[in-house]
Design a binder for these strands. Structure first.
Lengths: 146, 146
DNA sequence: TACAAATAGTTGATATGTCAACCATATTCG
DNA sequence: CGAATATGGTTGACATATCAACTATTTGTA
């Protein structure tokens, strides 16, 4: 077992625990994880297109089509035609979407703080190190896509 | 944005990049990520039950039922009845499963080394810090399940 | 201008994931 | 012993994910 493999394993494990926590937590708002994050990205970038959302979500655009359909059906999101490009839609939160996202987002922020509250040590260093990890991965990904 | 939220975001992002890389990489062996890891756990723990496998995979047991069905159909895994408990199955790799796993596993190890090769800095420290993160998350999870 | 190429989004097929409800077998305990 | 309870696995329903193929536009360029 190399260091690289150890690093890989623990990063995956941590994600699984975070994800499991998120799923249980967001359940109280009747939101799945992808729905919550869709709301977040639309909240942060009003008028975003489906393709842009798929890039933020690191997910296939066909998946986003169906995710957004669900959010629209539930009255949390609206799609409006872009006047300058007839192919694209602009996504916005409805009142209900805003209100639900505000509640869920605030609670999720606290939940995150709570989850990591027992941690001590140098967070800045850890964050910095993780940023390097991410950068290296993104770099390799971009090389591969050329 | 708090440190906890930053930490959370970057851990999720890193996972997504790792996962995307894995998916593309394992494609050459006609293995999905869950199939590859199922083979790995059965390889490392011959005779493991479906429930035990679901714990290793951090996944619902109903999902494991269908994953293993697929692996069995493809002739990579066999289920044998446990003689001391008529409810459980014991999982083993077939010859084909062994052979495929050996190839894929070796290649995946190299792939991991390659992915992280541009990283410098103190790996031991990073691993140690991540271990603390994981421990805290597991702890909270166990508290919640009581 | 007109045609080729790129981009935005959808659809169908299929794999993976959760959850709830279920059956069969084991275990616990009065 | 025998009833209640727990455990192992399956099934049905449905959400989420990828991929390939498709339509409709827009953009690039000869």
């Amino acid at each position: 077992m190399t260091i690289a493999n150890d690093l890989y394993s623990i990063l995956k494990d941590i994600y699984f625990y975070l994800d499991d926590g998120d799923r249980r937590f967001l359940n109280q708002f009747e939101l799945s994880i992808p729905r919550f994050f869709s709301l977040k990205h639309i909240h942060d970038n009003p008028g975003i297109s489906l393709t842009q959302l798929s890039i933020f979500m690191l997910s296939h655009k066909s998946n986003i089509t169906r995710l957004v359909q669900g959010l629209e059906t539930e009255g949390l999101v609206v799609r409006e035609r872009d006047e300058t490009d007839a192919r694209t839609y602009q996504l916005y939160l409805t009142e209900a979407g805003q209100s639900l996202f505000n509640k869920a987002s605030a609670a999720h922020g606290l939940f995150n703080q709570e989850r990591f509250s027992n941690l001590d040590g140098n967070f800045e260093k850890l964050l910095q190190a993780l940023n390097s990890v991410k950068e290296v991965l993104v770099e390799k990904l971009e090389n591969k896509q050329q």
